[in-house]
Design a protein around this nucleic acid. Structure first.
Lengths: 252, 252
DNA sequence: CGGCCGGTTGAGTACAATCAATTCTGGTGG
DNA sequence: CCACCAGAATTGATTGTACTCAACCGGCCG
């Protein structure tokens, strides 16, 4: 298996997104030009976080936004009953640091070792009015995040564990696809418990759902981190979404 | 009770949001200046929809975005099993028409009689690069929508019907608060079934949850449309969120 | 080799979905 | 103004599914 080719020297912050108004066949584009990235690099610094490290906490004074270079970040909130809910996994070229009224709207932590650009808000705010291009690209990225939030909502409102998991896998698969990575195999960079926090189930339920999909011959798990979809037809039935496969048969 | 004072002649599209970087005590501000609104009015047209009418469907070619003047709009998707999930209720000064790759990312329908501005995308796209101000305000609005999407996700991941409903009521209450409307009473402009589609429960379950909250003396429903919170303490316990009340006691 | 963390598996329970029967409500026409 | 109707909402009985709690496994690191 080939390694994912990451540029060794980063050229500056990057935003990858589907364009809201232009069809691109499901592939995400790099929104920023080299020049823009270079300009942003001037106001960004590179920071690293160890696996598990908290990057910031909900309610902290929001002083910067972040752009993932490498690794996986989880955005989450602690529920009242000390349970955590993950909203999103942020991958390279993603943005995080959402704030409301000057405070971070959620917490974030490194799910794997992580390298990010950190852009201080004052710097960004002074740059923005001068840079309509950048603003526009931010809008694109935010639209995409909204779309993903909606898919997440759909996922969460599924009742059956199998459907939730199938949709989750489908989500990750599409993420890999839009990034131009291989799609014959799904790579899960997070642990089962993280998946549970994302799909709104207990660790135990996630495990059972994996087993259930595997027993039915729908997926095959090699490594706990690598999943292969064996029976695409059935898979789509549980994951819904695909208007093609799901309407053909619904024998439940 | 004073009527909400709506301008009889609209001065043009309007965006109301919490500012991401400035504390405003939970009150939303009108982001656009009169001048900006007037300029937008030049490229906007006013459209009305009857209660229940579909405004656009997921997958339609995205040709415009919309700005609510009056009434309530629901953004939703049809699930594979012909069940609908509502992502958001859009009120006056809200924006909708989210698209990806040139197609609407979800469907929308009027939950009540609705009046909206319609701004064609080409017009908007030609205006945007010339108007960094406007772009910035769009960013603000999108950030707020993301925050709301996250709260929705938290709501959906609650397991107990009572908690879901309590969080929903809290959400609506805060919406009213940020809009500067009265808060001693919660007004629900949508039907029970819409609430069900938003919180991810069946109509029956929503009804039971209302009864359950009422029986415990936590809320009081006058009209099916008006709810009053009687026992704030208990209410917050179920709704979570408020870090103060919820940590004091958890006798469940 | 032992301990620990992440993950799997098992038994019992709680809760919402389902299906279905009523009741309530608001709107319409006589 | 009232009677009626249809859609909305409530309620009831049953069932399915995921949670809880808890025991157990397996790999990794010291």
């Amino acid at each position: 298996m080939t390694k994912t080719h990451k540029p060794v020297l980063a050229q500056g912050p990057a935003l990858r997104a589907l364009h809201p108004w232009t069809p691109t066949g499901g592939r995400a584009r790099q929104l920023l030009s080299d020049q823009e990235r270079a300009r942003l690099a001037a106001i960004a610094s590179i920071v690293r976080f160890k696996k598990g490290e908290v990057i910031y906490r909900e309610g902290d004074r929001a002083e910067a936004i972040f752009n993932v270079i490498q690794g996986v970040v989880a955005a989450y909130k602690e529920d009242s009953n000390q349970s955590r809910r993950i909203f999103a996994f942020l991958l390279s070229d993603d943005l995080f640091g959402l704030s409301a009224e000057g405070k971070y709207a959620n917490s974030t932590r490194a799910v794997s070792p992580v390298t990010v650009y950190r852009v201080s808000l004052p710097a960004l705010r002074s740059r923005l009015p001068k840079d309509p291009q950048l603003e526009f690209h931010l809008i694109c990225k935010l639209c995409q995040e909204l779309c993903q939030a909606q898919r997440h909502a759909i996922l969460l409102s599924q009742r059956k564990a199998i459907s939730k998991l199938a949709m989750f896998l489908q989500l990750i698969e599409q993420l890999q696809f839009t990034r131009g990575e291989r799609t014959d195999e799904i790579f899960l960079p997070m642990q089962r418990s993280d998946i549970g926090e994302y799909v709104g189930m207990t660790l135990a339920a996630v495990s059972r759902a994996f087993q259930s999909l595997a027993r039915r011959g729908i997926i095959k798990t090699q490594n706990r981190r690598y999943v292969r979809i064996v029976d695409r037809m059935q898979f789509e039935r549980f994951a819904g979404e695909s208007p093609l496969a799901s309407t053909i048969k619904s024998t439940a």
